[in-house]
Design a protein around this nucleic acid. Structure first.
Length: 890
DNA sequence: ACACGTCGGGG
DNA sequence: GTGTACGACGTGT
C-alpha cells in the first residue's frame, strides 16, 4: 500500500508503542498504517570519558531496553572525528523525559542529545517520512475497532516514495449559532448551540452544505433535531460519514470547536470526531485567548487564521474577507437579531437564520478551497518533514529543526536538546550584551528623485548564499586555533573550515533548496496549466520561505542550535558585501547610491528613457557581479521612474518592470502606511492621491495644492461625513473600561438615547469628532446623529490628529513646512532660515529694514520696523532677500 | 526611540 | 505529549 501522510501519532498497546500514520492510499481510500517494533532513544555524552560509569547507571534503569556505545559527531564546532557516546533505547516514549531529567543531574553526564523529539517525529525522521509526503509500505490488512479508516494495515516495511496518483482531499467547514444569556459573547458553560452548519468540498451525498437545527423546517439539507444532544450526535455522525481530511471554519480554533467540544463534554457525548475511537478531539489554550484544536487523523485549518497570516487587510471579519477575496456577500444578521429571529416563532424568520448559518460555513470553506490557502503549507510540510497541522500552527523554528534533525543524523551528527529556561535567559543576556547587528542601511538621500531613473539591484537569496559561500554551519565553525585544516575567514574574522574539508550541513541543505527553487521556477515558466502553475508557485514559495528561515533560526535564543557567532557572521558578511557594492557603484562607476537596505541598492542614473535605463542597469549589474564571487550575485529586475524617500525604511516609488518585453508599472510602498484601522478614510484617500501626484507627475507643488484643497474642504465642511468616520470595537462592557475612551463614551451616550439599538459588547462602532469645548472623548458622535442634528465636525481635530501626522512626514521630506501644509504661506522659523542661508554661502549678518535701512541684530517680533517697513536679511555682499517675518517665529 | 498592555476573530 | 506557545497596534514614562 502507498499512502500520503496526513497525520501521525502513537498509542501504547501491551506496553509497547505503535506508530499510526493516517492519510489516504493510492486509491483515495482513507488509510491507517500501524508500525510496531520501533522504540524511542536518545544519546548521552560522558564527562571526562567516564562512559562506563554512566552506562552502568543507566542500564539498570527500568524501561531501558538497550544501551549501546556509538560513535557520533558533536554538532557544535568543527571536529574531525566522532566521539564515543551512549545510545539509550527505552520501551515507552512517555518515560523519555523522566529519564532525561534524571540523567541531567547525574555528575558523569556532560550533555544529552535528542531527548526532546516527539516520538512520531523521531520515527518519521529515521524513515525519511514527511508530512504530506508519500510512503510505500509492505503491509497486511487488519480488522480493528480502534480506527475508523476504510483501510487499516499492519506495516512491516515503510519507505518514502513519489506521489503515485492525485488524491482528493476532503474539506468540511463548521459554523455554529448560539444565543447568549448574559449578553456579550456566548459561553459554552451556560449557553447552548441552536444551529450547526456544515459545508463540504467535494459535496456530501449531493449536498454542498447541511444545517442541523432544533427549530425550523426539516428539508433535504436541513435536519431538524429534538434537542442539542441529538444535534451534536448527528453532527458527529455526519463527520464520520463524510470523513473529512481537513476541518475548517472561520475562527473555529477560538470559538466553534472549543464551544462544540465543551458542549459535548457537558452532555456526556463522546468527542471522537477524529479518525480513531480511542482518542477524543480536544482544544488547548496555548496562551491566554489563543486556543488550538486537535482532531486525531484530521487537520484543523482555521480560515480566519490562514487569511490573517497571508493577507494584509484593514479588517478580518468574515464579511470583509469574503467580499474582498471571494467577491461574495455574507447574509448579514446583527447579533441582537439572532435571538429575535430564533424566538419569533415565524418559519420564514427561522429559515433566514438557517440560511445565514449555512452561508457562513460555505464562505469559510470557499476561502480555504478557492483561495488554495493550504498549498503553501503542504509544500512546507513536504520540504521540512513536519505534519501539515504543525506547518499550519507552528512557526519557522519547528520546520528548520525538523529538517536539521534529518540532515544531521544522515551525516552521523547528533542534535542538542532545546535549551532550558535558565539557558535561554543566559542567551538572551548574551545577545543583549554582544548584540546581534542587523543589515546595513545606506543613509537615504531624502526627498524626491525624479530627475533620472533609479536602478534597483538585489542580492538574490542573500543570507542563504552567504551560508553557502562561507560554508557557515554549527558543524564547521572553528573556535581558536586549528592546524593543518583549510579554513575560510569572514570579513569580521569568524572562521569556518572550507567546504573541501567538510561541507556544512546548513550550506548543503540550502544548496538543495536553492537548486530546487531554480528548477521549479524554470518549469513554471513553461507550464501553461493554471492549476499546475499554482502548485509550482506554492512550491517555489515554500523553498524560499524555508531557505530564508535558517539565518533567523541561528539567532533565535530558544533554538537547539542558537549560535550567536553564526548569526553575526551572516549579517557582517551581508554588511560587507553591500558596502563593497556601494563603493563600486560610487567610486568606480561614478553613480550615486540614493538608498539601500541589507541586500539591495538603489542607484540613480542620468537617464529618463526606460529602455536605455534597462540597458544601463544590466551593465551596472554585470560590472558588480564580475567583482563578486559566483555564489553571491546581484539581480537587476526593476527600475524606479521616481522615488520618494522619507527616512530609512520608508519610501514610495513608481516601479517599472519588464514582463515578456512589456513594461508594467506599479506604485511600491515600504514603511508608509496608507491604511490603518484607526484612520478615517479621508486620510488614506488623501495620502494615496498625494503620493500619486508626487510620483507620477513629479510635481510637489501640485501635491501641496491638492492637499491644501482637501484641508480647505475640511474646514468648509465639504467632506462627506462617511470619510471622517473612525471605527473601533467594544470589547467589554462599557462600565468595565478603566480609562476614558472615545468610542466607549459614545456607546454610553447612545445607550442613553435608545437602549434598544445601542451597540453592545463585541460590536464595532463608527464615530466622528464634533466641535465643543469638552474633553475629546465626550465629543464623539454617531455619524447618523450628527447628520440628523446638523452638528459641526471638529475639523481642527481631523487636521491635527488624523491628517497631519502621516502626511506631514511626506511633505517634510520634500522640504515643505507645516505652515505651508496648512495653507498659511511659507513661515519657517528664523533660526532655520539663518542656518539655510549660511550653507548657501550668503553669510547671515543680521536684519535690515527695507524701508528706512535701520539695522537689527534680532528681528522685531512684529516683523516690521518701527517705521512700518518690512524687515529683510542683510548679508556681507549687501544683498538682501525678502522674507516675511511673522510674530511668534523667533 | 523603548517597554508594556490589549485586542482580534467568533455569537 | 521525548513539546512549543500570536502579532499588530495602542498607550505610557
Amino acid at each position: 500500500m502507498k499512502m500520503q501522510v496526513l497525520d501521525a501519532d502513537y498509542v501504547i498497546i501491551e506496553d509497547r508503542p505503535i506508530v499510526r500514520m493516517f492519510g489516504r492510499d493510492e486509491n483515495n481510500k482513507t488509510a491507517c498504517g500501524f508500525v510496531k517494533g520501533y522504540f524511542p532513544y536518545f544519546y548521552m555524552l560522558a564527562r571526562d570519558g567516564k562512559i562506563q560509569d554512566m552506562e552502568k547507571f543507566v542500564s539498570s534503569k527500568q524501561d531501558v531496553i538497550k544501551c549501546e556505545r556509538v560513535m557520533k559527531k558533536l554538532p557544535r564546532g568543527f571536529s574531525k572525528d566522532p566521539t564515543e557516546m551512549l545510545k539509550v533505547t527505552l520501551r515507552n516514549p512517555q518515560k523519555v523525559s523522566e529519564l532525561r531529567d534524571l540523567m541531567k543531574t547525574h555528575p558523569q553526564v556532560e550533555e544529552i542529545f535528542e531527548a526532546d523529539i516527539l516520538f512520531k517525529y523521531r520515527f518519521m525522521a529515521d524513515y525519511s517520512i514527511s508530512g504530506m509526503g508519500w510512503v510505500d509500505t509492505e503491509c497486511a490488512d487488519i480488522n480493528t475497532h480502534t480506527v475508523k479508516t476504510e483501510r487499516t494495515v499492519n506495516v512491516t516495511k515503510i519507505k518514502p516514495t513519489d506521489q503515485p496518483a492525485s488524491v482528493q482531499t476532503k474539506y468540511m467547514a463548521v459554523d455554529i449559532e448560539t444565543l447568549s444569556k448574559s449578553g456579550g459573547l456566548p459561553n459554552p458553560s451556560e449557553d447552548d448551540i441552536i444551529i450547526i452548519s456544515l459545508a463540504f468540498y467535494p459535496e456530501h451525498r449531493g449536498n454542498k452544505s447541511m444545517v442541523l437545527t432544533i427549530r425550523g423546517a426539516n428539508t433535504d439539507s436541513v435536519i431538524r433535531c429534538l434537542d442539542e444532544t441529538e444535534m451534536l450526535t448527528k453532527m458527529a455522525g455526519i463527520i464520520d460519514d463524510y470523513d473529512p481530511d481537513v476541518i475548517t471554519g472561520f475562527n473555529i480554533n477560538n470559538f466553534d470547536l472549543p464551544f462544540i467540544l465543551k458542549r459535548m463534554e457537558m452532555l456526556k457525548l463522546p468527542r471522537t470526531i477524529g479518525r480513531c475511537n480511542d482518542k477524543q478531539a480536544y482544544t488547548k489554550e496555548i496562551v491566554k485567548n489563543r486556543v488550538r484544536a486537535s482532531v486525531p487523523g484530521r487537520v484543523v485549518a482555521d480560515s480566519y487564521q490562514l487569511i490573517k497570516k497571508n493577507f494584509l487587510f484593514k479588517r478580518y471579519g468574515l464579511m470583509d474577507v469574503s467580499r474582498i477575496l471571494l467577491n461574495q456577500e455574507k447574509l448579514d444578521v446583527a447579533h441582537s437579531e439572532i435571538s429575535k429571529l430564533w424566538n419569533s416563532g415565524d418559519k420564514d424568520k427561522i429559515s433566514r437564520l438557517i440560511d445565514y448559518a449555512r452561508k457562513d460555513a460555505e464562505l469559510a470553506l470557499d476561502l480555504v478551497v478557492k483561495k488554495q490557502l493550504l498549498d503553501k503549507y503542504i509544500e512546507l510540510s513536504k520540504l521540512s518533514g513536519v505534519l501539515l497541522q504543525d506547518s499550519l500552527d507552528g512557526g519557522e523554528a519547528g520546520r528548520v529543526e525538523n529538517l536539521l534533525l534529518r540532515e544531521f543524523n544522515k551525516k552521523n551528527f547528533v542534535v542538542p536538546c532545546r535549551p532550558e529556561s535558565s539557558d535561554i535567559r543566559k542567551k538572551e543576556q548574551e545577545k543583549e550584551d554582544n548584540g546581534l547587528k542587523g543589515g546595513f542601511v545606506l543613509t537615504p538621500k531624502v526627498g524626491l528623485h525624479s530627475d533620472g531613473l533609479i536602478v534597483v539591484l538585489d542580492f538574490r537569496s542573500m543570507y542563504p548564499s552567504i551560508f553557502r559561500s562561507y560554508n557557515i554551519c554549527p558543524t564547521t565553525i572553528v573556535k581558536g586555533n586549528i592546524d593543518g585544516v583549510e579554513t575560510i575567514k569572514t570579513p569580521e574574522g569568524h572562521t569556518f573550515v572550507s567546504k573541501d574539508v567538510q561541507e556544512g550541513i546548513i550550506p548543503n541543505i540550502l544548496g538543495n533548496l536553492l537548486e530546487e527553487r531554480a528548477k521549479i521556477k524554470k518549469s513554471m515558466r513553461q507550464e501553461t496549466d493554471e492549476e499546475k502553475r499554482r502548485i509550482l508557485d506554492a512550491k517555489q514559495l515554500a523553498t524560499k520561505i524555508l531557505a530564508n528561515s535558517f539565518y533567523g533560526y541561528t539567532g533565535y535564543t530558544k533554538a537547539k542550535l542558537y549560535i550567536l557567532d553564526i548569526a553575526n557572521a551572516i549579517t557582517s558578511c551581508g554588511r560587507y558585501l553591500i558596502q563593497t557594492v556601494t563603493k563600486t557603484v560610487e567610486s568606480k562607476l561614478g553613480y550615486q547610491a540614493v538608498y539601500g537596505d541589507t541586500d539591495s541598492i538603489m542607484v540613480k542614473i542620468p537617464e529618463t528613457d526606460l529602455e536605455r535605463g534597462w540597458d544601463k542597469g544590466t551593465e551596472i549589474m554585470n560590472t558588480i557581479n564580475s567583482e563578486l564571487s559566483g555564489a553571491m550575485q546581484m539581480e537587476f529586475e526593476k527600475l524606479f521612474k521616481s522615488f520618494l524617500i522619507l527616512t530609512k525604511k520608508r519610501y514610495a516609488a513608481w516601479k517599472f518592470v519588464k514582463e515578456n518585453g512589456k513594461w508594467k508599472d506599479k506604485i511600491e510602498m515600504k514603511g508608509i502606511e496608507t491604511v490603518r484601522r484607526d484612520w478615517c478614510e479621508l486620510v488614506s484617500d488623501t495620502m494615496n492621491k498625494t503620493i500619486d501626484i508626487i510620483l507620477k507627475k513629479g510635481d510637489t507643488k501640485e501635491a501641496l495644492s491638492y492637499f491644501n484643497g482637501v484641508m480647505k474642504d475640511l474646514a468648509e465642511n465639504k467632506i462627506p461625513i462617511e470619510k471622517l468616520v473612525i471605527t473601533k470595537s467594544i470589547t467589554k462592557s462599557p462600565s468595565n473600561y478603566a480609562g476614558m475612551q472615545p468610542h466607549i463614551e459614545l456607546a454610553k451616550k447612545m445607550a442613553k438615547r435608545n437602549s434598544q439599538d445601542a451597540p453592545g459588547v463585541g460590536d464595532r462602532i463608527g464615530y466622528v469628532i464634533t466641535k465643543g469645548n469638552q474633553l475629546l472623548s465626550k465629543r464623539t458622535e454617531d455619524p447618523a446623529y450628527v447628520k440628523e442634528k446638523r452638528l459641526e465636525i471638529d475639523h481642527v481635530y481631523y487636521v491635527e490628529n488624523q491628517m497631519l501626522p502621516p502626511i506631514e512626514r511626506i511633505f517634510t521630506a520634500l522640504g515643505f513646512s507645516k505652515s505651508e501644509l496648512l495653507g498659511k504661506g511659507r513661515q519657517s522659523s528664523l533660526m532655520e532660515m539663518m542656518k539655510s542661508k549660511q550653507t548657501k554661502s550668503n553669510v547671515f549678518e543680521g536684519f535690515v529694514c527695507a524701508g528706512c535701512g535701520n539695522e537689527y541684530s534680532a528681528s522685531p517680533l512684529t516683523g516690521l520696523c518701527q517705521c512700518g517697513g518690512k524687515i529683510q536679511i542683510r548679508t556681507p555682499t549687501g544683498a538682501t532677500e525678502k522674507i516675511t517675518v511673522q510674530a511668534g517665529n523667533v
